[in-house]
Computed example of a mutant assay.
Amino acid sequence: MERIPCPHCGLRPLAEFSYGSEVVTRPDPATADDAAWGDYLYTRSNPKGPLTERWVHVHGCRRWFTLTRDTATHRVLDSPFRGDEV
């Protein structure tokens, strides 16, 4: 069973979470044109390998957090969770 390390609740089953999106940098509203906003809203890198993502623990603490996951293996590489196993 796949588990996600919630920084507030510990290791929990994947079914308790909902994927938010890839972490992307928001353009500066004062200088961004329509193309920059379009890229920000709709374009994602979709790499095979490490990706920093936002997740929400919908069936637990209901908090958002960021983690880095390998998209090829689904292994969590970096997380704010400080448990013994990740």
Rank of each mutant, 00 (worst) to 15 (best):
M1N: 12
M1Q: 14
M1R: 14
E2S: 13
R3G: 09
R3Q: 15
R3T: 12
I4T: 02
C6Q: 01
C6D: 00
C6T: 02
C9N: 05
G10E: 03
L11R: 03
L11W: 02
L11N: 04
R12P: 00
L14S: 11
L14E: 11
A15F: 11
A15N: 11
E16G: 04
F17I: 06
S18W: 04
S18H: 09
S18R: 12
Y19C: 09
Y19L: 14
G20C: 02
G20H: 02
G20E: 00
S21Y: 07
E22L: 09
E22G: 03
V24S: 09
V24Q: 02
T25V: 15
T25N: 09
P27D: 05
P27M: 08
P27L: 10
P29Q: 06
P29W: 06
P29T: 06
A30G: 09
T31N: 05
T31M: 09
A32E: 02
D33I: 07
D33L: 08
D34M: 13
D34A: 15
D34N: 14
A35H: 13
A35V: 15
A36H: 05
W37G: 05
G38D: 13
G38A: 12
D39P: 01
L41I: 10
L41R: 13
Y42E: 10
T43F: 15
T43Q: 14
R44I: 09
S45Y: 07
N46M: 15
P47T: 13
K48M: 13
G49M: 08
G49Y: 04
T52Y: 04
W55A: 00
V56W: 01
V56T: 06
V56A: 03
V56F: 00
H57Q: 05
H57G: 01
H57L: 03
H57P: 02
H59A: 15
R63S: 09
W64D: 13
T66R: 06
T68P: 03
T68N: 09
R69A: 07
T71W: 02
T71H: 04
T71K: 05
T71Y: 04
T71V: 07
T73S: 14
R75M: 13
R75V: 15
L77F: 10
D78Y: 08
S79M: 05
P80M: 06
F81Y: 11
G83I: 12
G83M: 10
G83Q: 11
G83E: 09
D84T: 13
D84K: 13
